[in-house]
């Protein structure tokens, strides 16, 4: 286990660097001095317990919440992302945990919301064609793109939200639990997509509770615990147990106890006289 100590200056290979980002909501310090680096063509998984501050971090990067303090460097420039439009303009695309879709609008309208083709005379044909391309690419099982999002299933909505982040020409894509509601095939497609994005040289930040998914696609794993950095690991040299230990803050944790209990149970069972 080799937690790479975060460099104090932004690494010049990174497309996006955070330095001592803090965010407080009233008395709650959701994030405290968080550092994070994403290089082009790199997938960084951010993991942590419920309430660790992952979604808050995402929202800071998406311009939804302004950080209380700290600096964000995007493509070697210090930037302030004070609203979502700024994040889009920089090239940071986000899939939110709550998806942030408009239920009364249809799939095409949601995909292109805020980035419609031809502002004064909408080109709905071009938008529909592009929508189908994106959805097919994600193996989306959506029968028609002309129905309101309200009538889609949870997984279909999640696919729409992911497809939306691909519109435009993003440099960094942030996915907040993108596979939480997805079926087996769709999860595989999203993981494939993440790999394709990496090949295209995009920086990807993926938040996930699923260790298998994390180990399958991520290059680095950054652990957040109670709003603070708790280590950054290279995926190759770390085991799931070590990550879980970092997430929960102890080697002796609920997950390991449970694992050893089950281990014990199996052993007893096998050891029982026949």
């Amino acid at each position: 286990m080799t937690p790479t100590a975060p460099a104090s200056a932004p690494a010049d290979t990174s497309v996006l660097s955070l330095r001592s980002i803090s965010k407080t909501f009233g008395a709650v310090a959701a994030l405290t001095d968080v550092d994070l680096d994403v290089a082009p063509g790199q997938v960084v998984a951010v993991v942590g317990d419920n309430g660790a501050g992952k979604s808050t971090l995402v929202k800071v990067l998406a311009g939804v919440h302004a950080p209380t303090s700290g600096t964000i460097t995007f493509e070697q420039r210090t930037v302030t992302i004070d609203d979502p439009a700024t994040a889009h303009d920089l090239g940071i695309a986000t899939v939110f945990q709550d998806l942030a879709l408009c239920e009364n609008l249809n799939v095409i309208e949601n995909l292109f919301l805020g980035r419609e083709i031809n502002a004064l005379r909408l080109d709905d044909v071009a938008m529909e064609v592009r929508s189908w391309e994106l959805l097919r690419q994600l193996s989306a099982k959506i029968p028609t793109v002309r129905i309101p999002v309200a009538s889609l299933s949870g997984g279909q909505r999640q696919t729409v939200a992911i497809a939306r982040s691909l519109i435009g020409d993003p440099r960094v894509i942030i996915l907040d639990e993108p596979t939480a509601a997805l079926g087996v095939a769709q999860t595989a497609e999203v993981l494939n997509l993440v790999e394709r994005l990496r090949e295209r040289g995009l920086g990807v930040i993926m938040i996930s509770h699923n260790m298998e998914d994390v180990r399958a696609v991520a290059d680095k794993v950054a652990v957040l615990r109670l709003g603070r950095n708790n280590g950054v690991f290279d995926v190759q040299d770390v085991s799931s147990e070590e990550i879980i230990a970092a997430i929960t803050g102890a080697t002796d944790n609920a997950v390991s106890q449970r694992a050893s209990r089950r281990q014990g149970a199996t052993t007893t069972h096998e050891g029982a006289p026949s």
């Binding site: 609203d83 889009h88 408009c102």
Partner: peptide
């Protein structure tokens, strides 16, 4: 579109970069 979006879900409209 942005009028309908704001009427449907203000927060989603805001996050989509709509003023």
């Amino acid at each position: 579109r942005s009028v309908y979006a704001v009427g449907g879900n203000v927060e989603a409209a805001r996050r989509a970069g709509i003023n």
